[in-house]
Design a protein around this nucleic acid. Sequence first.
DNA 1: TCAAAAGTGTTCTCCCTACACCCATGG
DNA 2: CCATGGGTGTAGGGAGAACACTTTTGA
Lengths: 257, 257
Amino acid sequence: MQISLALTTFAEKKWNMATKGQYTYEYPHPAVTADCIVFGYDGKELKVLLIKRGKEKDASTTAYVGEWALPGGFLDVEKDKTIAHTAARELKEETGLKLSVKDFKEVGTFSDINRDPRERVITVAHYALVKLAEVKAATDAEKAEWYSWKDIPHLAFDHDKILRVAFSKLKQNIHFEPVGFELLSEVFTLPQLQNLYESILEVKFDRRNFANKMKHYEILSEVEDDTPRHGTRTPIKYRFDKDNYDRLKSNGFQLEF
Amino acid sequence: MQISLALTTFAEKKWNMATKGQYTYEYPHPAVTADCIVFGYDGKELKVLLIKRGKEKDASTTAYVGEWALPGGFLDVEKDKTIAHTAARELKEETGLKLSVKDFKEVGTFSDINRDPRERVITVAHYALVKLAEVKAATDAEKAEWYSWKDIPHLAFDHDKILRVAFSKLKQNIHFEPVGFELLSEVFTLPQLQNLYESILEVKFDRRNFANKMKHYEILSEVEDDTPRHGTRTPIKYRFDKDNYDRLKSNGFQLEF
DNA sequence: TCAAAAGTGTTCTCCCTACACCCATGG
DNA sequence: CCATGGGTGTAGGGAGAACACTTTTGA
C-alpha cells in the first residue's frame, strides 16, 4: 500500500515537477528517513537483515542501485505518527517482516551533509532484535537476506557506519536489556546463551562462571525434556523465567559481564 | 548572521509565499530542528539553560510565545554539516554560549506528528555539559537563564519530555563518561564531586565509601592550598589527574556507582 | 555552646575469577 | 578410541557496604 504510493511519487516525478508545484516551503527542508538494523540469532551466529537496492524502483531516481543496504525509507509526513512508525512500515514493505513500533530502539541520527547524493537526507537509525527461527519464514527472500555478522558486504550510503554504531549500541544495551529474551528462541541451551553474549560483547567467558552467574540471577528455568538425558553431551534446555526477570528489572538491576 | 537570515525569512513569509515558490519538493518534507539541553553545575545544584520564546521573532509565526523552552532551531540544509552543527550554531545565536560541535551528545529524536502546531517538525535533542562558573559570563542574560534542576518551569512544545529523556541519558552516561571533568570547575572539593554524582544519580552515598572509591581510582590529585588547613571544616581542594584518567579510560574502565 | 560540615579506617560479606575432572557421544 | 562438547564445585582475593568519632567553624 505504502509501496505503491512511493512508487507512484517516484515515477511521476518529472511531470509532477513541471505541472504541479506540490509541496513548497519558504526555506529548504531535508528529507527524513528511518533505517532499520534487524539483528537475529540462529543459535550459532548473530545475523543482520539486508536488502538489495533498486530492484523495483526507477533506477534514474535511486542511488546505489544493486548494492546491499539497510532496510528503510522516507518518513510519511502526513501518516507516520513517529519516526519509529516509519521504520516499522518500511521494514514491512521492504522485507515482509512485521514488527511492533516498540520493538525498535533508536540508534541515532545520521545527518552528514553529503551522505545522500540526491538531496539532503537525514536518517534516524533504529535497531530491533528478533528470534530468527520464528521470523525467517516471514521475511521475503526475494528482497531481503540474512547476513552473518562476520560476513557483511559493503553497504550503500553510510550504512556501514550506521551498522557499526548500531552494533555498539546493542553492545551497550546488553547490560540493561533482556537481550536473551528477544534474540533466542523460547527454548534454548546455556551454550547458546553464552555464545550469544560472546558474539555481542566480543569476548570469551569461562563456561562454569557463566553458568554460575546465570543461575545466580534465577531467571532461567529448566525445561523438562521428554527424553531423559543420559550423558551431558546433549545440553539442558531452558526457558526464561519472565516473572523473576521482571521482578529483578523493576528493582533496577543490571546484568554485569 | 544566521539570526538575521532567519528573521528575514520569517518576516518575509507572507509575500514570499505569494511571489516566490521558493523550495519545492515532489513529496512533503518535515522541518528539522536541533534542541540543546545544556547542563551546568555550580558546586551546589545541577542547572539547565533555558530561553524565553518569541521575544524577538514575529509572534504570528512563532508558537508558544513567552514560554520557556530549550534553546534550538532549524537545520540549515545548505550550511550545517551535521545536525550537531545546528545545535552548536543555534545555541550560540540564542544564548551567546559558544560550544564545540563535539561537546554535544545526542539524546534522541522526537518526532510526534503533532509536537509542533505549525507544521511537522522533527527535532534531534543534544545535551552538553559545561563548567557553570566559566561560562556564566558568556551567556546572554537578556535571552537565557540558568534554572536549577529542581525548579524547572513548564516548557513549550514537548520540551518537558525532551528534558526528562536528556537527564536520563546523562544518568546512564555517567557510568562511562568523565562527567566530573566536564561539569566541575578545575579545582573542586570532594563534597562537591559527591554532591554532583548524587544530584545526577538521585541517590545518597556514604561519605567515607565515596572518598575511598575515588581515591582508589587515583584520578584526583590534591591542590596544595596557600592557606594551611587548621581543622577539617574547610574541605581539601582537588583537581582531576587527566593522565591517569585517560590511562584508565583507554583500558576500558567503567565508573561504578 | 551547639549544630553542621568534613576528614578518616576497619571489618565483613559477597561476588567475580581462576581452575580440573568426568561423562557421553559421534566420527 | 579419541576428540569434542557439556555439565559441575571450590577456594581465594578484592571491592563494595556498613559503620563512629574527632575537629572546627559559624550561628
